[in-house]
Amino acid sequence: MTRILAAASAAFLFTLSPALADDHGEHAHDDHAHGEHDMQPADMALNEDISAALAAGGSLVTAEVNGMVCDFCAMAMTRTFGRRDEVAAIHVDLDTKVLQLVIREGESMTDEVIRDLVTRSGYETTAIRRGMAD
């Protein structure tokens, strides 16, 4: 029986393979990039979706988050923020422990709301910056 369950687990993973390829958040444009490990947020290149959302008139918010060490952590963030209509794009970088959001043109999201949503995701915000780094 245990062998059957083990095989079922493997089959389960296989059936999820399409979801694995896409599931980084509820926004289809959510994505990730591979930053250098010692890269500072200010130096971080913007990924394609973030860049596209900014080009559409959105504003960039960068939050530094403690405790993000795995995909479940990142996914918690993308799914929590992905439910918000004012969020146009989301990007989580585990290397720099940074959450990037693009807020749609004409919309806003206060620091208090961002901190609350990070908390509801199970994590802790240490800093929030707005706009592009100098």
Binding site: R3, L5, A6, L16, A19, L20, H24
Partner: peptide
């Protein structure tokens, strides 16, 4: 992403772990 899978083996009991 959203999936975690673990596979192992317990030699003392000759049982798989998953």
């Amino acid at each position: 992403g959203p999936v975690l899978l673990e596979l192992g083996y317990t030699p003392a009991d000759d049982e798989p772990f998953a």
